Computed example of a mutant assay.
Amino acid sequence: MTADALLPELTARAVRAAHRDADGCPCEAGVLAVRPDATVVRHAGAVAKAHAPGTDPGPLALRVATAARLPGILLPPLAPHPAPLHDRLVTLWPYGAPVDPDDPDAAPWEAAATLLARLHRSPAPPGLPPMRGPAKAAQAIARLVAAAPDHPAAPPVLRAWATLPAWARAEAPMPGPGRLCHGDLHLGQLVRHPAPDGPWKLIDVDDLGAGVPAWDLGRPAAWFACGLLPPEAWSRFLAAYRAAGGPAVPATGDPWAALDTAARALTVQTAALAVAKATEAGRPVDEVEQAVVDACDRMSRRPPPLADAPPK
């Protein structure tokens, strides 16, 4: 079913969730996202999310239940179970105020790091599936190969991909024992709840699972290594994670040996998606996208493990 056909019924579910216990309703509403992997609508204080076609209901139910058990870390759901809607599964969530993309100086790096540390220290419930980060990286590579096999940026990205260990390419199980991981951490995965100035919470449980906790630090580590995240912001993030007892890196000293694989994998994923999206849109890669491709080229010439310092 197309997103356009899905929207009326998805919106109706958000309306019912918003008004179930409300004394009054400001009726702020709108479509928050329409992507192949998710359609998301808001009505007042409720958000309805239609997950990707083919989503397995069992693992999604476990992920939603995990969010319900950790309301101080993850945004808790409004409904305890996913519900079918045509060929999709729908989950219901309270609305939270997102990070302001126009105010990078106010980016909640410390809050993100502290929430991650607390998540990684929480026990993974029995039966929770693996964290889906490596699988998403592999999907990004598949999209690159399908959309832009002849693009001049494709070879360095694919060479860098080939240097990664099999688990980071979703070709082998992740090394264990696994910890509870978010699987797709970036600043768009944080909201304040209650809006507009409640505490920060992590959202989006689609990739939640047991795995290598360093993966959740991989994107900011990659941005730092590529020169896209200022050293001061990276230092704040890392210090907050350590202060909260995060297990992904040593408590002191150089963290890079623990972060190397994840940072490389997230760099490759970012570059693959950038090149694929640019090709699909019929435009050249921009300066930031080219910087990530260039990082892949450097990585392919210097296979892991890295030396004691992150790449320049």
Score class of each variant (00 low, 15 high):
Pro231His: 10
Ile203Phe: 07
Val288Asn: 09
Gln189Trp: 00
Val99His: 06
Lys49Gly: 00
Ala124Asp: 03
Leu238Arg: 00
Ala67Lys: 01
Pro125Gln: 09
Glu28Ala: 15
Trp161Gly: 01
Gly188Phe: 02
Leu180Cys: 06
Ala195Phe: 06
Arg298Tyr: 13
Asp4Tyr: 01
Gly227Lys: 02
Ala271Thr: 11
Lys201His: 15
Lys136Arg: 15
Ala12Ser: 12
Leu259Cys: 08
Leu6Trp: 03
Pro98Ile: 08
Arg192Pro: 02
Ala291Gln: 14
Gly30Phe: 11
Ala225Met: 14
Arg143Thr: 12
Leu266Ile: 07
Thr2Gln: 13
Ala146Leu: 11
Ala107Glu: 11
Asp216Val: 09
Gly96Phe: 02
Ala276Val: 07
Cys27Asn: 10
Pro255Cys: 07
Glu9Trp: 05
His81Ala: 15
Arg20Pro: 01
Val145Cys: 12
Ala67Met: 05
Ala3Ser: 15
Pro130Val: 06
Gln290Asp: 14
Arg143Asn: 09
Arg283Cys: 11
Pro305Val: 12
Ser122Thr: 14
Ala243His: 13
Ala5Ile: 04
Ala61Lys: 02
Asp103Val: 14
Ala154Trp: 00
Leu75Ser: 11
Gly72Ala: 15
Val99Ala: 09
Arg264Met: 06
Ala135Met: 08
Pro177Gln: 04
Arg236Gly: 11
Pro149Arg: 04
Ala265Tyr: 02
Asp197Asn: 12
